[in-house]
Deep mutational scan, measured.
Amino acid sequence: MAAAAAAGAGPEMVRGQVFDVGPRYTNLSYIGEGAYGMVCSAYDNVNKVRVAIKKISPFEHQTYCQRTLREIKILLRFRHENIIGINDIIRAPTIEQMKDVYIVQDLMETDLYKLLKTQHLSNDHICYFLYQILRGLKYIHSANVLHRDLKPSNLLLNTTCDLKICDFGLARVADPDHDHTGFLTEYVATRWYRAPEIMLNSKGYTKSIDIWSVGCILAEMLSNRPIFPGKHYLDQLNHILGILGSPSQEDLNCIINLKARNYLLSLPHKNKVPWNRLFPNADSKALDLLDKMLTFNPHKRIEVEQALAHPYLEQYYDPSDEPIAEAPFKFDMELDDLPKEKLKELIFEETARFQPGYRS
């Protein structure tokens, strides 16, 4: 834990890192770190609560700039109880001085990944967590956004079992017609939660990839272990087919990539493993919904509104309290091709509203 900075004593240090967030945020305490930044909790002297502050230093890398800009653009436009918001952003007053960006968010005690390492969940908890994931996802999908990296560590939890989806750095506007060349190379989302079509096709992607990830998360809540822990690309596919069985001819016809289709045709026939054999203690309604989410063919996979209306979630289902976005989200430009200098300018502009004396 960093010592509390005395008023006016300059930035606090946390594990050798400068955290320049005073005077409003003090009493910093280390939480963890990701690929390009550290997260601390801090005391907000204005709202009198502890908050989470993520320090991001992305400006050396085009990919990190892209992810940072995506996350900020999306989260500043989203407003939903099951999606983490941005409360404040701290950065230098000029673009030349801006080396880091500090993002202030609600402090959540833990995440689903940490929880599943230590606790076996009751059916009631599984049901409530799944409902909140789908409630947040309904809003995301209504904005025409794909999260693309749903996994237990991106689901934040607090002691009252509130759940918030975080990390929109890989999110995209849904565009089933656009052929994202190089899709697989830039697709760094965790393999275990990846839909089979991501490994088999490169053309376009749809909201059904997020539903697949939610199915993987439900299976993990039922058993405290990942359902498809593939060691590499082909191993991942083999794990999936080992449980779902061989795809039907109709399902194979959806695979545009001939090499991928021929690979699947070359494999020995596998039978589907019954879900109640894998999860003998699970609620039968939970397994019915799991089956509809972990469907090989993305066109037959359940959609988020149908999933919310499934009998497993009937005690929570309330369409009048499951809000959607006001308007579909649009990125003005494809960020993939922009140089990091341009992305830095866009991050600077996007964060201006939090600067003292800002006038829109």
Rank of each mutant, 00 (worst) to 15 (best):
A3F: 12
A5N: 15
A7E: 13
E12Q: 05
V14H: 07
V14D: 00
R15S: 00
R15Y: 11
G16I: 15
D20E: 00
G22D: 12
R24S: 00
Y25D: 06
N27T: 08
S29H: 14
I31F: 01
E33Y: 14
G34T: 06
A35M: 04
Y36D: 10
G37M: 05
G37Q: 04
M38I: 00
S41D: 13
V49Q: 09
V51T: 15
V51L: 13
T63K: 04
T68M: 09
L69S: 11
I72F: 03
I72R: 02
K73E: 02
I74G: 03
F78M: 13
R79F: 09
E81P: 12
G85V: 01
D88K: 14
I90K: 15
I90N: 01
T94A: 11
T94W: 11
Q97D: 08
Q105P: 08
D106N: 03
L107W: 11
M108R: 10
D111L: 05
K114N: 00
Q119S: 14
Q119F: 09
S122G: 12
S122I: 05
C127L: 04
Y131V: 07
Q132D: 06
I133S: 09
L134Q: 00
L134T: 07
R135E: 10
L137P: 01
I140G: 07
S142H: 14
A143P: 06
L146Y: 11
R148C: 02
K151Y: 05
K151D: 08
P152E: 01
L157M: 05
L157W: 10
N158G: 06
D162T: 14
C166T: 03
C166L: 03
F168E: 04
G169T: 11
V173T: 05
V173P: 06
D175G: 03
D175R: 06
H180L: 00
H180M: 07
G182D: 09
G182C: 06
T185N: 02
T185P: 00
T185V: 04
Y187V: 04
W192T: 02
Y193Q: 02
Y193P: 04
P196V: 02
E197Q: 02
I198G: 08
S202E: 03
K203V: 02
G204E: 02
G204M: 09
Y205K: 01
S208D: 12
I209R: 01
D210G: 06
I211E: 02
W212M: 02
V214C: 09
A219R: 01
M221E: 03
S223Y: 00
N224A: 13
G230C: 00
K231A: 11
H232F: 13
L234S: 06
Q236D: 04
H239V: 12
H239M: 10
I240Q: 09
G242M: 09
S246R: 01
Q249I: 11
E250G: 05
D251Q: 09
L252W: 12
L252V: 13
I255P: 13
I256Q: 05
N257V: 09
L265T: 11
L265C: 08
S266T: 15
H269W: 07
K270N: 00
N271P: 14
K272F: 11
N276W: 13
N281D: 09
D283R: 09
D288R: 10
D291A: 06
K292Y: 09
T295M: 10
H299R: 07
I302H: 06
E303Y: 14
V304A: 05
E305W: 14
Q306A: 12
L308G: 05
H310W: 07
P311C: 14
P323Y: 14
A325V: 09
A327F: 15
A327G: 11
P328G: 10
F329Q: 09
E334H: 14
L335A: 08
L335T: 09
P339C: 11
L343M: 02
E349S: 15
F354G: 06
Q355A: 14
S360H: 06
